[in-house]
């Protein structure tokens, strides 16, 4: 069956944030096998912050990501395994190892204004024979002309696709449209879109992107992704089917694996809580959620206040260390205010 829209399933990568990077080999084997049988074309497997992301800064992986990649490759008959890499965190060395284990797609992610740090990695991925995607994160933080220029850079380095990535789940549908339209008018390669559901707009934004010509979109089964998760894959498959847009994915099998495999694995259902809503509202990187909640507990603060302050300071993806830094500073100020009141 021809696919008009190509969906990449990100639950085994983005979803890793929601479970603090605790995937086991058994879980990945079961989920990847079921996704493959449902005819999902691409499955992304890596630490939530991409190759090399296992760290004290982002959270240590319970299982070595290369073991997870190898497992996923082994159980898939048609689906290709994708990996994420953030230059500055992962390196070409890790990309090579993933390619050796059978990963066929590399998604190279940078902050929306920093595409030029990806030239080395995009070139290396192409050389390894991988399909290569440029991933412009936190797309809400840059004006459209900047986004266009950065996408052109990624195209010039050899990327096959460029994604508008709404890492904070902060974009509104008309903003997604403007961005995708501008890219369609200025680059010659495919355009993709990656949503987060913090403002309950993941589906609406994904449809807006498709309407403007995006042909690659991401989904996560049961919304298993950072923050409030991504566009729910099984729902997206159903919606696109109703719209007469073929994805090639078997809807019933997708629903079954969501219900029977993924749901029981989740510590609690993915929903839009006040803190994940705040991520979208403040325009903060979705992976900050659990870190901010932990810092709030340690320092006796409201996680929302920490997230709003991080948004005000224009903190970018990967700056998880700023969460504790800002929380410590806010706690000190709070004490100072109390002391002032005592006097």
């Amino acid at each position: 069956m021809k696919r008009a829209i190509t969906i990449t399933e990100v639950a085994l990568r983005d979803g890793s944030h929601a479970i603090a990077h605790q995937y086991t080999t058994e879980q990945v084997a079961a989920i990847a096998k079921a996704l493959d049988e449902a005819n999902v074309p691409y499955i992304e497997v890596s630490h939530g912050d991409g190759l090399g992301g296992s760290s004290l800064q982002y959270g240590l992986s319970r299982t070595d990501e290369f073991e997870l990649i190898e497992t996923a490759v082994a159980v898939c008959r048609q689906a290709k395994i994708a990996v994420l890499l953030l230059p500055g965190i992962g390196t070409v060395k890790e990309l090579k190892q993933a390619a050796r284990l059978g990963a066929k797609m590399a998604r190279i992610a940078t902050h929306v204004t920093e595409a030029d740090i990806s030239a080395q990695h995009i070139a290396a991925a192409k050389e390894l024979g991988m399909e290569t995607v440029g991933f412009l994160m936190m797309a809400h933080m840059a004006p459209i002309d900047v986004l266009v220029h950065q996408a052109q850079l990624m195209e010039s380095y050899g990327a096959d696709v460029v994604y508008v990535v709404d890492s904070a789940g902060a974009l509104l549908p008309y903003e997604v449209k403007e961005r995708v339209r501008a890219l369609k008018e200025s680059i010659g390669i495919e355009v993709g879109f990656h949503a987060h559901n913090n403002l309950s707009l993941a589906m609406a934004n994904t449809l807006a992107a498709i309407e403007e010509g995006a042909t690659r979109v991401d989904g996560s089964v049961r919304c298993l992704g950072a923050g409030a998760g991504n566009t729910q894959t099984e729902v997206l498959v159903a919606v696109l089917d109703r719209m007469g847009i073929p994805t090639g994915i078997d809807l019933y099998k997708m629903m079954d694996l969501a219900e029977q495999l993924v749901a029981p694995m989740l510590p609690k259902a993915q929903e839009i809580t006040r803190d994940s809503l705040t991520l979208g509202y403040a325009g903060v990187y979705s992976s900050f959620l659990l870190h901010a909640q932990r810092a709030a507990q340690t320092f006796g603060l409201d996680a929302r206040d920490i997230l709003i302050e991080l948004g005000r300071r224009k903190v970018v993806g990967g700056q998880e260390d700023m969460i504790v830094d800002v929380a410590a500073e806010m706690a000190r100020q709070k004490v100072a205010v109390w002391e002032g009141e005592w006097k």
């Binding site: 800064q57 500055g88 920093e114 990967g318 700056q319």
Partner: peptide, 19 residues
Amino acid sequence: AIIILNPAEPPILMRNTIY
């Protein structure tokens, strides 16, 4: 080692976290 570039204006001071 991890390196992050932040484009905020005015530019931020260099920050380092050591674990």
